[in-house]
Design a protein around this nucleic acid. Structure first.
Ligand SMILES: [Mn+2]
Ligand SMILES: [Mn+2]
Ligand SMILES: [Mn+2]
Ligand SMILES: [Mn+2]
Lengths: 148, 148
DNA sequence: CGCAGAGTGTAGCCAAGGCTACATCATAGG
DNA sequence: CCTATGATGTAGCCTTGGCTACACTCTGCG
């Protein structure tokens, strides 16, 4: 019998930690689609049009990169686009965009409530938002609602 | 001269938003290295050894993936490793690990303070931590320190 | 009403970070 | 002291999300 120098064959704590990293990786892969959906909805709401070049400029990427990402949104049933006609969201895309928009605002609000300066809050929120679970969001809402 | 149908050629708000996304992208690319450094330091501190297989299991990736990432840490001057001898951190690697460890704890503590359940806090922190700026961290500390 | 120039799309490159399959090394038990 | 086995390393593949370069389409002015 070996006194294992490393705890055990399958320490459950290890699996828990591995699962955390796995969740973070999945959240990250969803982030791109979420940001595009949010931005497209924003452009459609304000200007009435969401064109690849506008999207690219707002995201700070080349238009080719934006067009490829839009193709991914189409593949995933979140957007539609006919050549040279601009981008639109499907019902599913709009639902996603709305959810993301609310989450984004809530994250910014929480950061502000914690005393983070406005521009830092906006900046950090852009990355943080994709990693905030529903249960955390619910906690954020309770925290902001509570008196005082 | 063209009467631009879209606000202006270089609306500063657009650049601001683009810069936010750019920061988030950079933070993301740093995330992997940060998690490895933190984990290696953790393994070295507890068991005394950080072996590729252990690292892989904790992160939930294949050992081949871990070895490639370790190569990246070596390239960036954060780790050293002689074949079959385990992984160690350079001084720079240790500094990074320490910074990441403190940040991770602070993020978890803030989430807990906001009323996020423990496991959700740990899970979300694993992703959030990489997007929290120094100025936000400072705000978090002030918030936690403040009486009541 | 034509066309210059902006916008759009396509092709092909790269690096990162996953994976599996296979080859090599180290070592602990027999 | 041999060797079976687990750990380590290598090779090669895939997908994603960047990029540039180039080709095509639209359209508002002149
Ligand atoms: Mn975002
Ligand atoms: Mn956002
Ligand atoms: Mn992390
Ligand atoms: Mn961490």
């Amino acid at each position: 019998m070996t006194i294992e120098p490393h705890p055990a064959a399958e320490l459950p704590a290890e699996r828990t930690q591995a699962r955390r990293f796995d969740k973070a990786r999945h959240a990250q892969s969803a982030a791109l689609v979420e940001d595009y959906a949010e931005l497209i909805a924003d452009l459609l709401a304000s200007g009435g049009e969401a064109r690849p070049t506008d999207i690219a400029r707002r995201l700070g990427v080349s238009h080719a990169t934006a067009i490829k990402a839009i193709a991914r949104l189409k593949r995933e049933g979140l957007a539609t686009a006919k050549p040279y006609r601009g981008v639109f969201l499907t019902a599913a895309g709009e639902r996603l965009a709305e959810r993301v928009r609310l989450r984004h605002r809530l994250v910014v609000d929480i950061l502000l409530a914690l005393g983070v300066p406005a521009e830092a809050a906006e900046q950090d929120a852009e990355g943080i938002e994709h990693h905030v679970s529903d249960v955390a969001l619910a906690a954020f809402e309770r925290f902001l609602d509570r008196p005082r």
